[in-house]
Design a protein around this nucleic acid. Sequence first.
DNA 1: AAAGGCACCAACCGCTGAAAC
DNA 2: CGTTTCAGCGGTTGGTGCCTT
Length: 322
Amino acid sequence: MDVIKGRNSCTSSCTSEELADNAMEDLRRGPWTVEEDFKLINYIANNGEGRWNSLARCAGLKRTGKSCRLRWLNYLRPDVRRGNITLEEQLMILELHSRWGNRWSKIAQHLPGRTDNEIKNYWRTRVQKHAKQLKCDVNSKQFKDTMRYLWMPRLVERIQAANATTVPGGFTTTSTAAATNNNNMVNIPSMANIGYNELNAAAAAAQVTNSNYTPENSSTAASSDSFGTHLSPVSDLTDYYNIIPVNDNSNNNPNPDYFQPSGQLGNYSETSLISPTTYFNPGMDFQSLEPNTQLLDGGETLDNLLNVEDIWFLQQQFNNNM
DNA sequence: AAAGGCACCAACCGCTGAAAC
DNA sequence: CGTTTCAGCGGTTGGTGCCTT
């Protein structure tokens, strides 16, 4: 599709009468009809996109140029990718947002087929939701640290786990080597189409921003020689804390069962938790955060990176830290 | 089954910078 | 060189469907 910039008048076959008629008619608003979509697609197929105001008139659409442009870019464009945001894309969004902030368009450029609108919606509905649950500002250092040091490594693990279980021919040992030896970058074949370099950078940032954090001392690596095939069964965030059960009369394994329903702390002693300042201060010492050795299934969305216990626990951290 | 709440997402709005006149 | 027009961006809103009570 050719994008023509400038303010040239309509160059297609519409007449001046048509232009005048359209200009006098009331503009439509709200959801697009199938007929309108069809008109827009047809017109762009024949004349290309750009010059949206004149395009809207010439295509016989009682819409503003803005509306047409948005409809095309966010919905009708053939290369628009629809469906759930993948783990890889989530990781990309987290990383790129930490780098650029709310530059949705710029972020979208690195996620082929995704629109700025979609990414923006994703951020507001999913990521900001967690910030709200944690009662902290989405732009606060605490929240950014949570993303960078907890969610992103977690996403990397899950991506690797997903690929380890789905890629034919096995991927477990090679990915371990790649993650360990190649600047801790992940080696994920399915990422090839979505900004591989940036994704590697995102994965690397998630894994090595703090030099103490490596796949070797992550919960996953500690759980198995086969990197990515085993994930912790305990609440996602508690993987990273040295939580010691009180009155543990059965075993020494941290287990979500020690938490009671509705977010109560159950048998845990608050004093056994890693100090909030240890975790949230700059230069966090991840070596002090003992990984557990449990197993768990992988998740699909960022939402799964937090559960009730995580939310409750982080709220305590934030409250104590304020 | 109905009502209310919530989450998601398409679409709109206001603003800004760039290009054309 | 100032004005006008347009494209694009980010923030916000409203509609819709799903879930819970």
